[in-house]
């Protein structure tokens, strides 16, 4: 614990030093640029099947980056990010299907709604000093409640969910393109890059530094005059808004969202696991985690659906994909508590 605080103080001091100030951050931006260019060029050699997996992985990654903001940097463990993913997905579906609004606008509306909802939930929890496991439980319960409410609301089509209409013309405005269009890959990639750039900026910013100080020692941070509640809520709102964007894109890409796809507890788990596996509280951890979990889950699912000759005994073994990343999760938490990226970075620094 003291070790962490030390590190925190150090990095804060580093940033105040003019010689060091820009270098670490601009190095991070440069790395992001390189990664973005490489990922943007990838689909040139991709089959449609691989693209589906890649898009799923990108959605995983956006969710994980969002979850990491709140739970990694903010220290508020959320077990209910499905609530915000669902708000994004359903706002998009409702506005696009029933009111023919452009998905881009629906995405922003959803993000604002989710940020407000997340802020309200966190405010209520923090006001009553619910921390740690209690906070996780409260978020879990809220996600569950939203799921039940949606399942019982006529206006949101109860358990049937929304089907997006397939429009006669392709357009950026309505985010619809020819089947297999690479735009379906580039849009979430763009969102992810913006989210990562935002994370880098946030971590270096005053608000981000405060959020981390509060995470490490709330009493100490408050005694220095930091308004703990305010900076926690800022972090939560950012995280929830971004999660809603991922949800809105989910609806757009799959042309469908139902209560379980939006608010199911599986969604919360999908937001959490890549971040934990990659490394909580690091910029790149969630992306690396998503790169591991996304292809693994999708790959196993497609093998199970259509197994090659050697693996024919696997036919119909649903559940194997989740079982594999459940084992991965347990192993990582036990033996690499800082995640893949965090552990490698520490070793590299030594």
């Amino acid at each position: 614990m003291t070790d962490m605080v030390d590190k925190q103080v150090h990095s804060a001091a580093d940033r105040d030093d003019p010689r060091l100030k820009d270098r670490s951050r601009s190095r991070a931006y440069l790395a992001l640029l390189v990664v973005a260019v490489v990922l943007a060029l990838l689909p040139l050699g991709m089959s449609d099947r691989v693209e589906t997996i890649a898009v799923r992985t990108l959605i995983f990654a956006i969710m994980a980056v969002a979850w990491n903001l709140m739970s990694g940097y903010g220290g508020l463990f959320s077990f209910g990010h499905a609530a915000f993913f669902g708000i994004g997905a359903y706002t998009d579906a409702y506005l696009v299907v029933d009111h023919s609004v452009s998905p881009w606008i629906a995405m922003i509306v959803g993000a604002l709604l989710a940020a407000a909802a997340g802020g309200a939930i966190a405010f209520l929890c923090l006001r009553y000093r619910l921390a740690g496991a209690y906070f996780a439980l409260a978020t879990f319960a809220f996600a569950m409640m939203f799921l039940l409410v949606v399942q019982n609301l006529e206006i949101l089509h109860k358990t049937e969910g929304f089907n997006l209409p397939i429009l006669p013309t392709y357009s950026w405005k309505m985010m619809q393109f020819a089947q297999g269009s690479r735009n379906y890959y580039w849009i979430p990639l763009g969102i992810l890059v913006v989210a990562l750039a935002g994370t880098i900026a946030f971590v270096g910013s005053r608000a981000g530094q405060y959020a981390q100080a509060i995470r490490d020692d709330e009493v100490a941070a408050a005694s220095l005059g930091i308004n703990a509640l305010r900076y926690r809520l800022v972090t939560v709102a950012l995280s929830c808004g971004l999660t809603a964007v991922a949800g809105a894109y989910y609806t757009q890409y799959y042309f469908f969202v139902g209560p379980d796809q939006g608010f199911g507890s599986g969604v919360s788990i999908e937001a959490m696991i890549p971040a934990v596996i990659g490394g909580i509280g690091t910029v790149w951890g969630p992306v690396i985690g998503a790169l591991v979990v996304g292809p693994l889950a999708e790959g196993i699912t497609s093998i199970l659906r259509n197994p090659p000759q050697v693996l024919s005994f696997l036919q119909g073994l649903t559940g194997l994909d989740v079982a594999v990343y459940a084992v991965l999760l347990i192993v990582i938490v036990l033996f690499m508590p800082k995640g893949i990226y965090g552990t490698l970075r520490d070793r590299w620094r030594k």
């Binding site: 077990f79 649903t318 559940g319 194997l320 079982a323 459940a326 084992v327």
Partner: peptide, 17 residues
């Protein structure tokens, strides 16, 4: 919290298999 979550996923999905 994470370990028991992983354990829960593991039990359910192994039973499913």
């Amino acid at each position: 919290l994470l370990i028991t979550l992983g354990l829960s996923l593991l039990i359910v999905n192994v039973l499913l298999m």
